[in-house]
Simulated assay, not measured.
Amino acid sequence: MTALFRRVIGSFGTIVDRVSSLVVPPGLLRWVAGIDVATAAGSVAVDVPDHATTLLLRIDRRELIVMGPRTQASYHVGAPVHSCVRVRMRPGRAQALLGRPLRDLADRAVPLRELPGLDVDQLAADPIAALEKALAGRPEPSGRLEEAARLLVGATVATTAARLHISERRLHTLFTDGTGLSPKHFARIDRVRTVLAADAGRWSDIAMAAGYYDQSHMTAEFRHFMGVPPAAFTAGRRPAATPCTA
């Protein structure tokens, strides 16, 4: 395995020419998993599958967008000099921030006219300060979904529900409302991201560490989400990139 995986996954799972990742202060960690400022420069970018919801600000247009979870990798050429601020939310936090379930947001990007308390101009100039101001005083959402997401790593849906003392139907509703994905789909994307973030090693060992039955199971799932098997991806043999029209 090459070191390229390390560049791919990061917090957001995107390769672009220039990315500046910001340190998330303790006061925001209960809401935010990562913040960065990315600039495309006309080269190929890879957006890997992601079970998180992301707030994105197009700096040039002052356009605020909420991006639901991605269920497939995309390969595209970014328009030159387009910059954006990206805020990757923790499980369940975007639902509380937006005040609505996320069950219809998977693979969608929805423009937001406004987000109460969030100053778009300040977000472009100082993302940390803007988010601290917008989230100050907000009651912390329930941590049940994050707890469920942690338990789901390496466990079945049935086992996770039993450990939380809830029904599988209730667990399904918790995930679809809070992430836009079913628990099973959430776990499958998490495993692929674990493979992408893995250190160099034997594929069989990586498959076991990520929670797959075996290497062939990992290869099949990786191909489903990424379009090519792991070895081809690391070697740079990937699907053709398409122009980004956003």
Rank of each mutant, 00 (worst) to 15 (best):
D17Q: 15
A232D: 14
T234Y: 13
R6N: 12
A106P: 00
W203P: 00
E168F: 05
P111C: 13
A79Y: 05
G180P: 00
K133H: 04
A41K: 14
L112R: 11
P127A: 13
R30E: 09
D60W: 14
A106F: 00
V23S: 14
L196Q: 06
V228A: 05
G92V: 03
H51D: 00
E63Y: 14
L171M: 12
F233I: 12
G178I: 04
S43N: 12
G34R: 01
A200K: 13
V23G: 14
D60Q: 13
Q72P: 01
W203L: 04
A41C: 11
T54S: 03
T234D: 15
A231K: 15
L102N: 01
A94N: 04
R163P: 00
D126G: 07
G236Y: 11
L115F: 13
G178N: 05
C244N: 08
R86Q: 09
A187D: 09
V8F: 08
V19E: 13
I166F: 03
V195I: 15
A134H: 04
L196D: 06
P243D: 08
R103Y: 07
R144V: 06
R202W: 00
A134Q: 05
D205T: 09
T245H: 10
L118C: 10
G117Q: 11
K133T: 06
V16R: 12
A231T: 15
A79R: 14
C244A: 12
Y213Q: 13
Q122D: 13
G211P: 09
D60K: 14
R150F: 07
L118F: 11
D107W: 02
L57H: 03
